[in-house]
Design a protein around this nucleic acid. Structure first.
Lengths: 88, 88, 88, 88
DNA sequence: CACTGGAAAATGCCGC
DNA sequence: GCGGCATTTTCCAGTG
């Protein structure tokens, strides 16, 4: 026995979110189009974005390791937050 | 010679949009998790969503071929629009 | 250390298959050309093929979800196979 | 008025060819699988195939230019074929 | 934790 | 030569 209303609600929520996602995909394409219009090669631009993403991933990774070290040193989350603040 | 400011602005816009997209991806996963929590098999749920998506795709495909037929019959876009109106 | 002969054999097999695939791509184009020659609009024809393909995809998708339902009901693959047999 | 039999025959020929193409796609995947099974990284293998394809494309390009030269020198297609034969 | 299957992104191509 | 489409390839989650 399944709850139809519950199922339908879930399906609709997912579809709604996927629609929004599809809109963003189009938005992104449009920015690439615009970039092309002002002379930037979209293909290269995509590579630039990918590289930056990699970098950010590394930064987050390092931040996570830093957290681990700090926590291993007995610092509480609050202290960790303060320490992060101090980094900048 | 490239315009640095222009490039940076474009990159940031794209990254912003991709961030929003990533958020939606997470949101969708969470709905699937929630569904699992109330007893729906995520795998089946995904298939259900896929079937509904294919239904919609089929409808769009048929609408596209109808447009082509109308155009093949020598109807101009305006006439096509009118014909679409008449469908309803 | 890699086995050169083995690698070369694999590469050649793949290239052979891709050649055959490319031949089929050409063959398909030729049929579209032929169709055009006897008055069928290739664009519409492609859409017709696409619609039929989507029909088939939808059927397969539904069959897949049926399998999942059966499995969710605790039926073993054998039972699933029997159930499929019984469909016919 | 369209000729239904003719249309159906064309559609079936196209679908038949596309089926064969799909089979080859599977065959190719299987060779990659097999390669993986004996220790070759499929991803890298794909790159190797792509590079060789590029080379062949260049070779064909050069052959086409050669043909142009030969034809410019007043050689007929037959002579071109013979010249190719002689290359080997 | 490797692996399969499926979703998403990117490249290439064909028609206009 | 450009946009749109199809194919291909890459990525990732789920699974055993």
């Amino acid at each position: 026995m399944i709850n139809n209303n519950q199922l339908e609600a879930l399906v609709q929520r997912i579809e709604r979110l996927e629609d929004e996602k599809a809109v963003l995909t189009v938005d992104i394409s449009e920015v690439y189009q615009e970039a092309k219009g002002v002379g930037f090669d979209p293909k290269i631009l995509r590579k630039v974005i990918a590289i930056r993403k990699q970098d950010q991933a590394k930064v987050k990774e390092e931040a996570a390791v830093l957290d681990l070290y700090l926590q291993a040193l007995g610092m509480t989350p609050l202290e960790v937050a303060i320490a992060k603040e101090a980094e900048q």
